[in-house]
Design a protein around this nucleic acid. Structure first.
Length: 122
RNA sequence: CGAGUCGGCCGGGCGGCCGCGUCGGCAGCCCACGGGCUGCCGCCGAGGAAAGUCCGGACUCCGCAGGGCAGGGUGGUUGUCAACGGCAACCCGGGGCGACCCGCGGGACAGUGCCACAGAGAACAGACCGCCCCGCGCAUCCAGCGCGGGGUAAGGGUGAAACGGUGGUGUAAGAGACCACCAGCACCCCGGGUGACCGGGGUGGCUCGGUAAACCCCACCCGGAGCAAGGUCAAGAGGCCGCACGGCGCGAGCCGGGCGGCUGCGCAGGCGUUCGAGGGCGGCCCGUCCGAGCCUGCGGGUAGACCGCAAGAGUCUGCCGGCGACGGCAGGCCGAGAUGGAUGGUCGCCGAACGGACCGCCGCGAGGCGCCCGGGAACAGGAUCCGGCUUACAGGCCGACUCGUCCG
């Protein structure tokens, strides 16, 4: 479970991260990351994350299980993100019956790629 | 030691004999070769609530031209869950010294309705007693008494509730009429919190009842029916209609089987066939499509086999995240499947609560311990499967915490 302060909750926060953030695709998920132009104070603005698991992934039992797995995987990786950034992880249909270890690998490589592209200048 | 609060667990055990259900094996008998019957052996075989059927889901079928209107549910916040009216934490209000408990906990300046009895008066309140002023009369030394007119919500009394509370100013007596503090309401600002909300400050007018498990308004959610769902295979007997075919006949037609559709039977009554019964489109209206049968009562029937049907939102252990509900990862484990509805009976041993005279020990004593005897288990049982809630229950065990007292 993510603490309340590290969660994306409002609709516009999701759309801005998906529309304006950097996007990297992996077989089972897509990573969107939006880093603010001016880096704020890390204490005031921790990195925040949200999940998108659509009907295409499966029925509601499957969708909730995928969301719970991603949520647990996201927790320790959040600290590595720049302050104030917004992360959205979107699950693809192949994520439905992937174990946590495979999802973790996809998430790691996706995060590395998206940080390499955005983090080049800061 | 006493009084209490919260949570969890168990709910007879072992063995013998007789018996029951599914499945498997073996043997015998029957056979229309699909199988059936009987006997023996073996494995497995009800619950914490299997219950009430009150919620929520899975699963299955139906529906998914259009427009409008109804209907049902939920109700602090944030989480959790497949979902919920469940659960957790927190907030607010109330109760308790406390552990903790209780709350169907949105809105009553959107509107409407209802507030019994008592009481003078109960929702743009209300002068019964009382208090005060004026006039008249009586009395007249004073105090006063009666009648009439007026003022007054401070006091009495009624009530669940009487239009803010306390103190003062004021006045004929009084009143937020005015003032201070307090309570409450509305609005604004600052700070904290994801949020319900909390803390602080200011301004205002002086106060403006309850009931929404009354209608209603607001926000959010919700297609219908249910395992007798539904599917496959048999049986499709009988009746009616349509289509093509074969045979017979000069012909109208008759006979025969085939395919497709509808229909369970008899009697009685009612409505209806373009002046449209009835049905489909979740309910209603409009609309739209199909359209000749439909409805009610009485009588008498029928409901084969298999699948669905059991390994899934399952459970246990460890580690990790979280205050917690719960979740992630790894490993282990796995339970009946009836349909005439299977778990029972009996015997032996053990057996808690509880009851009891003698005896023994301890104690001044009430009594305690031991021995012995008696005593012997509540509520209740699957039927598609899960998650909850609620209700029933002889009794027992364990843990955490609170308060009081005593000792150290």
């Amino acid at each position: 479970m993510l603490p309340a302060g590290s969660r994306l909750t409002r609709r516009d926060e999701f759309t801005s991260a998906v529309r304006r953030g950097r996007r990297v695709g992996r077989p089972r998920l897509v990573v969107h990351l939006l880093v603010p132009a001016a880096a704020p104070d890390p204490v005031d603005a921790p990195p925040r994350a949200g999940l998108v698991v659509s009907r295409a992934v499966g029925g509601s039992v499957v969708r909730h299980r995928v969301a719970r797995r991603l949520r647990h995987l996201l927790g320790p990786r959040l600290a590595a993100l720049p302050a104030g950034s917004r992360l959205v992880v979107r699950a693809l249909p192949a994520a439905a019956d992937a174990p946590s270890s495979v999802l973790g690998d996809d998430l790691d490589s996706g995060l590395r790629a998206v940080l390499r592209r955005t983090g080049g200048r800061s």
